[in-house]
Design a protein around this nucleic acid. Structure first.
Length: 641
DNA sequence: GGTTAATTAACTGGTTCCCC
DNA sequence: GGGGAACCAGTTAATTAACC
């Protein structure tokens, strides 16, 4: 080992091998080069390798950059100290916030797509960040350098369009969104400056958390719904709700259509809405291409289309929907499908007590009977609709009414036309909502089950793959809400279907299309008619000739009203009635309990639907923000380029 | 002096494991 | 099951040494 090697080793020990040259030394080298001095000698003096010095000068000549770039990973980016501090501040202010929430927030408010590991490193200070930022602070030309980087590295570094020299602070594009958002809502909000960008970003995050807390909080549904029905539905701090953003964005579109698009009441149909605030009528097909339209258009409502033109309150609508098969039906004269008796004020009671039907069977018959006895209240779907169902629903614009139900296109036969169609005078297909149609579409022609993408309203075989490829939701955490939403909706469709949907009813009960529900209905009828016949042999004529009996006149409110066409049955019923007078009180008690149970069930279903509505609204808001952000990002990229 | 390949540091995302 | 930390693999820029 000669003297030079020893000196080299000593120099390396002093400086260390592969230790990055400080920006001060780099600056000295460049200054020497500019002055025409021997920079090699200076490099030797500074214990910098000749090649290194030349490399530094080459970088300066080629790129005009003094400081060194970061050594980044796959996606060239770096985390400034301000960003790290912002993340730390999030954690300080919201100790319960998770890394995943921070990650999602960063992704929504900026171009940052930091991994949870990186965020965790920041929070634990295990990441050696700040070198870059510190150098930026030390080097006065770094502002220019970073601008050069920004211009060259693409949109990942758009967040740092420019920075104050020596501060390393950048402009956060997401804050500009906030600025617009707040300006749109309230002029009192001052515009955001570059220097308070991180703080503003933090404020935005806090608003996000506030909204989330408000939505998921313990507020009563009624109050929450009332709040949501207002324009600034999320605003607890004077910030505008997302709907106002949409309104502004859609100002160029037809005003009515715009209102229909962004009116939150349209989406909160389960929540109380003032009567005078009549929701928009429909969403036209033309609006489906509007960029700021909420991507998620949920059309799976269970409301009757007949209610769409009535400015009824949602509570009324909900109650009507929930209790339609019970209270409404009970007020009408009905005919028991088993024994053929009529004039039941409470057919359900009759079915339960007289025929010993369980609840499910009773409800099935009630639902069937209710529709059969009250066609006028049945939402009628054109017979041409099934043809539409066969079509691929992907990317198909759907016109929906106030209740987010699909409106039949003008080219197809409108509702009720089938009643007037002499070719099909008797067949009435009832479907309480488009949900039925979509659920039918969940099994496409190829027999494969599809899910409806909540973001683009597209039926896809593989929703995960669709979210990744089309919506670029790379992380599982981003996809999970949409997957859950799609699955829950699919599940709800399947749950609701047997009890309320897909009735194909012949008006005279002669040509019942054998759907599963109808089969179930027929089975129940057969089962209990058989029992009925066995119990009352003479009543066999009822099964054979179920002629409508005259109104019962039994003042004692017999549970089994006699059929005038069958005297023996009448006698048996009367005798049975006399023998079971003491059971009436028991029946009344049972009826009361049943009524309470139905009310509780209705409340539970209403609460469930309300929660689903909230979830959908939240998802929609997220999507709107993301879409707006993407649009703005594109505009900025275009303006820069 | 200039160029280039190898090496190293810095940084990232993904995965796994552990804990609650 | 979700969150966080640790570990691993990959990428990029800087640094270095070797070569011409």
């Amino acid at each position: 080992m000669n003297q030079s090697e020893i000196q080299q080793q000593l120099a390396d020990q002093r400086r260390g091998r592969y230790v990055r040259v400080s920006d001060v030394d780099r600056r000295q080298l460049i200054d020497a080069y500019k002055k025409g001095e021997d920079f090699i000698a200076l490099a030797r003096k500074l214990n910098i390798k000749r090649s290194t010095a030349r490399s530094i000068l080459r970088t300066f000549i080629d790129e005009g950059r003094v400081s060194a770039k970061q050594r980044a990973g796959t996606r060239l980016r770096f985390i400034t100290e301000e960003e790290a501090e912002m993340i730390r501040e999030m954690k300080r202010r919201h100790p319960l916030i998770t890394i995943g929430q921070i990650q999602m927030r960063l992704q929504r408010t900026s171009t940052r797509v930091l991994s949870k590991a990186s965020i965790s490193r920041i929070l634990t200070n295990s990441i050696r960040l700040g070198k870059r930022a510190k150098r930026s602070g030390e080097d006065g030309d770094d502002g220019q350098d970073e601008m050069t980087e920004t211009m060259g590295n693409g949109q990942d570094e758009l967040m740092q369009l420019s920075s104050d020299e020596g501060t390393g602070e950048g402009i956060y594009i997401d804050d500009e969104i906030d600025e617009e958002e707040e300006d749109d809502d309230d002029d009192e909000e001052t515009r955001i400056t570059e220097t308070n960008a991180p703080l503003q970003n933090l404020d935005d995050f806090q608003r996000f958390m506030l909204r989330k807390t408000s939505i998921n909080g313990d507020e009563s549904i009624g109050n929450e719904g009332a709040a949501w029905s207002t324009k600034e539905q999320y605003d607890d701090n004077g910030y505008a709700g997302y709907d106002s953003e949409n309104e502004d964005e859609l100002s160029e579109i037809d005003e009515n259509e715009t209102k229909s698009l962004v009116d939150p009441t349209l989406n909160m149909s389960l929540l109380p809405i003032p009567i005078n605030e009549k929701p928009a009528i429909s969403i036209e097909n033309d609006n489906w291409g509007v960029k700021s339209e909420p991507v998620c258009v949920f059309v799976n409502r269970n409301f009757d289309s007949s209610d769409s033109e009535q400015p009824a309150t949602i509570d009324e609508e909900t109650t009507k929907r929930m209790l339609n098969t019970q209270s409404t039906a009970n007020r009408r004269i009905k005919t028991c499908p088993i024994c053929g008796e009529t004039n039941f004020s409470r057919l359900s009671h009759h079915l339960t007590v007289a025929h010993n039907l369980n609840r499910e069977e009773s409800l099935t018959l009630l639902a069937y009977s209710d529709r059969n006895n009250n066609h006028s209240s049945i939402p009628i779907v054109s017979s041409s609709s099934p043809k539409n169902l066969d079509k691929s629903p992907q990317q198909t614009p759907i016109t929906i009414n106030t209740n987010n139900q699909q409106i039949t296109p003008a080219g197809l036969s409108p509702n009720g036309n089938d009643l007037e169609n002499p070719d099909h005078p008797t067949i009435i297909k009832t479907s309480s909502s488009v949900e039925d149609q979509q659920s039918a579409n969940s099994l496409s022609a190829d027999g494969k089950k599809r899910l409806l993408c909540p973001r683009c309203n597209t039926w896809v075989l593989n929703l995960t793959d669709h979210l990744i490829k089309k919506h670029h939701l790379v992380s599982k955490q981003e996809r999970l809400p949409f997957l859950r939403l799609a699955r829950n909706r699919s599940l709800m469709i399947n749950v609701d279907k047997p009890s309320t949907n897909s009735f194909l009813i012949n008006s005279n009960e002669q040509h019942i299309i054998p759907t599963a529900v109808n089969k179930k209905y027929q089975n129940i009828i057969k089962k209990y008619r058989k029992k009925f016949v066995n119990t009352y042999p003479s009543s066999s004529s009822i099964h054979e000739t179920p002629a409508p009996p005259p109104p019962a006149t039994n003042s004692n409110q017999n549970l089994l009203t006699t059929n005038n066409n069958n005297n023996s049955l009448k006698q048996n019923s009367i005798s049975k009635n006399t023998n079971t007078n003491k059971d009436i009180s028991v029946h009344h008690k049972f009826e009361q309990r049943l009524s309470v149970f139905r009310q509780q069930f209705a409340v539970t279903v209403a609460m469930q639907n309300s929660l689903m509505q909230q979830m959908e609204l939240l998802q929609r808001s997220f999507v709107c923000i993301e879409e707006e952000w993407n649009d703005m990002k594109k505009e900025i990229v275009e303006s820069i380029s």
